[in-house]
Amino acid sequence: MNLLKEFIKGWWKENPVFVMVLGTCPTLAVTNSVKNAIGMIAAVAFVLLGSSFIVSLIRKIVPNQVRIATFIVVIATFVTMADRYLAAFYPQLSKALGPYVPLIVVNCIILGRQEAFASKNGVLASVLDALGMSIGFGIALMLMGSVREILGSGTWLGMKVFGSWYIPWQVMILPAGAFFVFGFLIWGFNSINKAFAKR
């Protein structure tokens, strides 16, 4: 039962992006299309699962003074693997995501989960926590990507959503649009959470 809670919490109640406001760099930078968002979600999920698994395995042998350094080595290994893998097998996606894949190494969601959870909990709980957080991150990026792609290009994952009458809001695929959508989604998340908290 407790494990289920660890798994579910990241989806909404402790959503890493909209509630904890972590990992905003990829959230703002690569969500101009759903396709890019999916690529980023996959890369982050891979890194997060891998490092949570390893970190919770080794948590007892790592001295406290160098835990951050060790975690970073683990994370950086996974990030580099993800980056090379994309470059080898998905060159177009790798080009579109640009420096934001290597930058996952400084994504606060990942180091945050190691420090706050994986280094203190068992393997199963840590993996479930990582999976839940990845899903939460995925929900956030899909929301951002969908809103921005639909409004900014009139398409969703490349498929036409509106007829030819629709005039795309170019600002939505520019950085400024990311901030607008981000602000409105945080507003939405918090209002809904508040409404639930009152009950």
């Binding site: 042998i61 790592v62 001295p63 003074q65 160098v66 350094a69 060790t70 080595v73 683990v74």
Partner: peptide
């Protein structure tokens, strides 16, 4: 221990 752990992981 610190030295060993860091070296092994690197």
């Amino acid at each position: 221990r610190i030295v060993i752990v860091l070296t092994v992981f690197s």
